[in-house]
Structures are given as structure tokens and as C-alpha cells.
Simulated assay, not measured.
Amino acid sequence: MTWYETLIGSFFEILTLLFFMNIFNSKYLENKYIVILLPLITAVIIVATDTLMVPVGYLINYAAIIILFSLLLKINIMEVFFEFLFSSAIILLFQTILIYISSNIGAQPMMTRTEIAIHLLLILIVSIVVGRNRKLQLKVRPFYRKYKIQTELIAVNLFVLSIICLYIWDTDLSVYNENIIVITAITLLWFVLNAYLLKKLTDDYKQKKIIALHEQNILMSKDLINTSFEEMNIDLPNEMVKNKDNEKGKMVFFTTDEGEILVNIEEIYYAEKKHNYCLLHTSSKVLRLIGISLKEVMDTINVEFFIKCHKFLAINMKKIDGIRNLNNKQYAILLKDKKESVYLDSKYYQELICKYKHLVNKEGEEYESL
């Protein structure tokens, strides 16, 4: 293949990877300029290693891809690493199936340029369909976050096996024994990665077991305290009763980029829809929610003081400091203890005002005109 054929082929291969990896994280396709820039840069690196005939060039290419993905997309390098492993292993498996079909149909020792182009196009189409499938994302992302280490362990094994297969295909069997060091190094890497992931899996299991025991002890302690008060005919203090009644209602779980996080509803300022994900703005940080719509966020929070103020925004009315009229159809909601503001569409204005007044009267606070 000529250098420009390698460049075009590599560009489409990396583009295919980006679409497939989007199943795990929406950041891969978030910036359309980076979606074009990343495959182009990596394709140039692949052409360079291929032209210079660098030994085991594909491993260098893989390392360059992972580092570039991590830097330009601002994703943790280990997350990129394992998501890349899993995606590339599946794509290599699909390529193997296509090669097998082509060889049996054409009965030729080498694929033609047309066959290679057809293969690339088919793989790209499949990756676009899979990577942009919203229903699949909603199923895969929470599952991936929940069973992250197990998925990474499978990815490592799939990837190393595919690398060994590629190396055997690219190596003349007559000089196979001369390259036993490379094969040994790859196999050693395989065992090291498996050992690392098994240790993580064991540590994670132990930690979860300790947390479960700790939570069980806390519940047992609470039951003993409550039983003691009841037997002594002593009422619990008002504050303890209040906390007990609101214990479940005040805290909700969300699946984020950082994993499962417990959030206090009282600390939430607002939620907003961005592209194909949601952001939850709290008093301390902004959480990027995975596999959930704005409506599902509101259903999860499920309190009367959290309502929509715009097509893509829902706000905690307890955090409203005031409303400023921007024009006939748009308003700006000022937030307590924050310099920023959020939009209030005229469509939601009357409903928000009515519910805000009801909330203030219900809590016995003095209502100030917004």
C-alpha cells in the first residue's frame, strides 16, 4: 500500500474506534473538531511508523492513540486504555470475520484495494450505528460503571489475544522462532495486566464487604437505640425524629463519570441537559450524569420544589434568589450564594411563580417579590 492509502485507511480506522468507544463515554464524540483532528494526527503517526518500518509498530501506534485520546478529550488515561482495548478487540474480531468471508468468496491470497475499502466502510457503518444508539448507551454505560473491573479484565484478554493473532499473521513462520522474545514480552504483558486487574477486583470486593458490614452495624446500632427509647417510654428528640423521617428522602443515587454517587437533594441547584447527557450543579461541584434524561433526573429527585424552568433546565426553587426580566420571552433566575444565573422561559414562568409562592407559604417564610 502507498503512504496515502495507509493514511486514508488509518484515518477511517481511528474514526471507527471513536464511534465505537462512544458507547462507554459521550466525550469521544462531544467535540466535532476533535473527532476529525484525532484520527488525522494518529493516521500521520501510523504512516510514519509504517514508512520507517518500526519494529512492532502497531504497539507504538496504539500507545500514541491512547495518549492523544486522553490528552485531547481530557479523559483519564486508564479509562481510555481499557475502553480502547475492548473496542479495538471487537473491531479486530469483526475484521477477522470479514477477511474470512472475503478469502472464501474470492479465493485470493491477498485482498484487493476494493475489498479493503469495502471492509473499512462496513466496519465504520456498524460502529456509527452501534456508537450512536441511545438505547444501547443507556444499557451499556451503567453496566460498564457497575462492573468496570470485570469488563476491563475481559478487554485485556481479548486485546492481547488479538495482538498475538495479528503478530502471527504478520510474521513469516520460517522466522517465527527468531521473534520469540517479542511473543514472550506480549504474553508477559498479558499476565501482568491480568494480575493487576485481579488484585483490583479482590480489593474492590473486600472494600465493598467492609462497607456492607459497617452499614449493617450502623443499622443494628440504630435499632438498638430506638428499641431502648421505646422500652423506657421516652420520646425521641424532635431533631432525631425529623432526621429519621427524611433520611431516605434527602439523599439520592446518580450514576456519574466518577461512579455511583450519593447526592443530597438540598445541595442541588439545578440540572441541565447537554447534548446526550445531563449536568447536575450542586453547591460543591458539577456532576456529569450517565445514561439518564432530564425527566429521569427529575423523577429520581422527586420533590415538589424541583421543577422545570426551561426545555433543558430544571431548578431547585429553594436556591432562587430573584428573577430578572431579560425580554418578553426570557427571564434570568438569580441563584443564592452563586454569581451565575439560569434561564427561565416564559412558558414556565407562571407555574414557577405559583409553586414558589406555595413553597414559601408552606415553609412559613416571608415571601419577597421576585
Rank of each mutant, 00 (worst) to 15 (best):
E260M: 15
I261E: 15
I265A: 11
Y269P: 01
Y269V: 02
Y270K: 01
Y270E: 04
A271S: 12
A271M: 05
E272A: 02
K273N: 14
K273D: 09
H275V: 11
N276G: 06
N276Y: 10
Y277H: 03
Y277E: 01
L280T: 05
L280H: 04
T282Q: 01
T282C: 00
T282M: 08
S284F: 11
S284I: 13
K285L: 09
K285D: 12
V286Q: 11
L287V: 07
R288C: 03
R288K: 14
I290Y: 10
I290P: 01
I292G: 02
I292Y: 10
I292L: 10
I292P: 02
S293P: 08
L294H: 01
K295C: 07
E296Q: 13
E296V: 06
T300M: 03
T300N: 13
I301W: 00
I301N: 05
N302C: 00
V303Q: 06
F306R: 07
F306C: 02
F306A: 06
I307K: 06
I307V: 12
K311T: 07
F312N: 15
L313P: 00
A314C: 03
I315F: 08
I315W: 05
N316I: 01
K319N: 05
K319I: 02
I320N: 03
I320Q: 08
I320M: 12
D321K: 15
D321M: 12
L326S: 09
L326Q: 12
I333L: 09
I333G: 03
I333M: 08
D337C: 13
K339N: 15
E340H: 13
S341N: 14
S341G: 06
S341M: 03
S341I: 00
V342R: 07
Y343L: 13
L344A: 00
L344Q: 07
D345Y: 12
D345F: 05
S346P: 05
Y348K: 01
Y349Q: 02
Y349S: 04
I353D: 03
C354N: 15
C354F: 12
K355S: 11
K355D: 10
Y356H: 15
Y356G: 07
K357T: 11
H358L: 14
L359S: 01
L359F: 13
V360S: 05
N361M: 11
K362W: 10
K362I: 04
E363T: 13
E363G: 07
G364R: 05
G364M: 07
